[in-house]
Design a protein around this nucleic acid. Structure first.
Lengths: 216, 216
DNA sequence: TAAAGTCTGTGATAAAAGTCACTAATCACA
DNA sequence: TGTGATTAGTGACTTTTATCACAGACTTTA
C-alpha cells in the first residue's frame, strides 16, 4: 500500500525535501505490523529498509545456541543500520527485529537507498544519522552488558521500556525479560522479587509496574 | 607531513580514484605513532579522521569508573566509524583509541569527509564500508561479552591478537589483558594458568605464546 | 649487588549468576 | 467447573567471577 504525500509530510515534517517525499510516496510501501511480528530474522535476506512511523521495534542479537540479547529499540522515524549495511552488500542479516508493539512503517526498496544518497542531501543526512544513532545504541548495549550487574541491567531495561512506550506498566513475562537479558527465567524472577522488596517495582502475573522512575 | 601520490597509490592501490588520491596527498597528514600512543581519549574532540596505512590500533570503551573493554582492532586501510560520526556531529569521542604497535596513518581533516562523499563515489563507498565493518566489529564484541565465558573470551582475544600481528607470541602483561577484558589481573592469571595446563598457551614473564591456533 | 619496582602465582573467601527440581498461583477454554 | 497450560516463586546446589592478601620471581637502577 502507498501513502500520499500529505500523510508522509505529516510524519516527516521538514525532515525530507519535497521531491524526496514525492518519491517516497511512489516507491515506499506502507505496512502495519502487530506486536510480536518478526520483521527480520537473523540470517534472512533484506530487500528493503524500514522507517518507523510510530510504534517500536526491538533489535536482538542471537548466538549460535539460540540465546538472544537485546541490543536496542527503534522508535518513531528511526531506521535500522543493519538493514542499510546488509542491503547495500547483499549479506544476510546479523540481527533479529521484532515489533514490540503495534507498529506502522514504510519500507524503501534497496536500490533507492544509494540512489537517493547522491540525489537528496536530506536523505544522505538521514542515512548518516541512522548509522550514528545505531552506533551509539550499540555502545550503550555494550556498556550495559560489560559494566553492569544483572539487577542494574534489569532495572535499566525496564526504564528503557518505560521511555519507549511512555508508560510504567508492562505486560511481559519473566521468561521474555530473561531472553532480552540473555539469562534464565529464574534469575529474572529472583531479581524482580528483590527489586519488589526494595520498592522499585510491583509484580503481578504478566505484569510489571515500575515504581520509582527517577533513579536509573 | 604530506605523502606524494606514488606512495599513496602504493597503499590504496585502486581503492580510490586518481583525483581523490591527488586531494589526499594535498590535505592528508601523514603520521607515525609508537606502540601505546593514545590517538584519541574518550571525551576528547576529533578534528580529523585517521586511515591506517599499516600497524594496528585498538579501540576501547571506558565506563565511568575507569574500567575499559576492548571493542575491536583497526588494521591496514581501516578507518574509525566513531571519528566519522563524531566529526560530522562535533561531538566528543565515545571511545578511546590506542596504537597497539608502531602504526603509520594518514589523517583527513573533517571538512573533507562530507565534501568527498558527494564528489567521489569511491570515497562514499569507503565511508559506508567503514561504518559497516565497525558495526560488524561491535556486534562481534557483543557476542563475546554477552555469550561467552571469560576463558573463551581470553582465548578469543589472544587469537585476534595473533591474527592482527601475524604472530603467536605477545609481549603483554596479565594486567593489560585484564583491562581489555574488563576484569582483574588475578582472574586473567588464573585463566591463563588453566589454559597453559590445557596446552593452549605457554607463559613467561611479559610474554604469552599461543600454541594451538586452529581451535577458537 | 642491593634495593625498589614490576609481574606472576595462588590460597581463602565472597559475591554473582546459572541450573535443577519442585510447588503454587493464575488463566484459558472445553 | 475443572483440566491442562502458562507463569511465577523458591530452595538447594554448582559454576563463574571478583576480591583480598601475600609470597616469590624477575628486572631495573642506583
Amino acid at each position: 500500500m502507498k501513502l500520499d504525500i500529505q500523510t508522509l509530510q505529516g510524519h516527516f515534517g521538514n525532515l525530507f525535501e519535497a521531491n524526496l517525499l514525492q518519491e517516497l510516496s511512489q516507491v515506499g510501501n506502507y505496512m502495519e505490523v502487530e506486536e510480536g511480528f518478526t520483521l527480520m530474522r537473523s540470517g534472512g535476506y533484506i530487500r528493503s529498509i524500514p522507517i518507523l512511523l510510530n510504534g517500536s521495534v526491538k533489535i536482538l542479537r542471537a548466538d549460535s545456541e539460540g540465546r538472544e540479547a537485546l541490543l536496542y529499540y527503534l522508535g518513531g522515524l528511526d531506521s535500522c543500520a543493519m538493514s542499510l549495511t546488509c542491503c547495500l552488500d547483499q549479506r544476510p542479516s546479523e540481527i533479529t527485529a521484532i515489533a514490540d508493539e503495534k507498529t506502522k512503517l514504510i519500507s524503501i526498496p534497496v536500490e533507492k537507498i544509494d540512489e537517493w544518497i547522491s540525489k537528496y542531501s536530506t536523505w544522505k543526512q538521514f542515512v548518516f544519522s541512522t548509522y550514528q544513532k545505531r552506533f551509539d545504541d550499540l555502545l550503550g548495549a555494550i556498556d550495559q552488558i560489560a559494566f553492569h550487574k544483572l539487577d542494574e541491567r534489569l532495572l535499566g531495561l525496564l526504564n528503557r521500556k518505560s521511555k519507549q512506550c511512555g508508560c510504567n506498566v508492562f505486560n511481559i513475562t519473566h521468561e521474555e525479560l530473561g531472553q532480552e537479558l540473555a539469562t534464565s527465567r529464574e534469575v529474572v524472577s529472583r531479581l524482580l522479587k528483590q527489586l519488589e522488596r526494595l520498592g522499585r517495582v510491583k509484580l503481578s502475573r504478566n505484569k510489571i509496574e515500575l515504581l520509582n522512575t527517577d533513579k536509573v
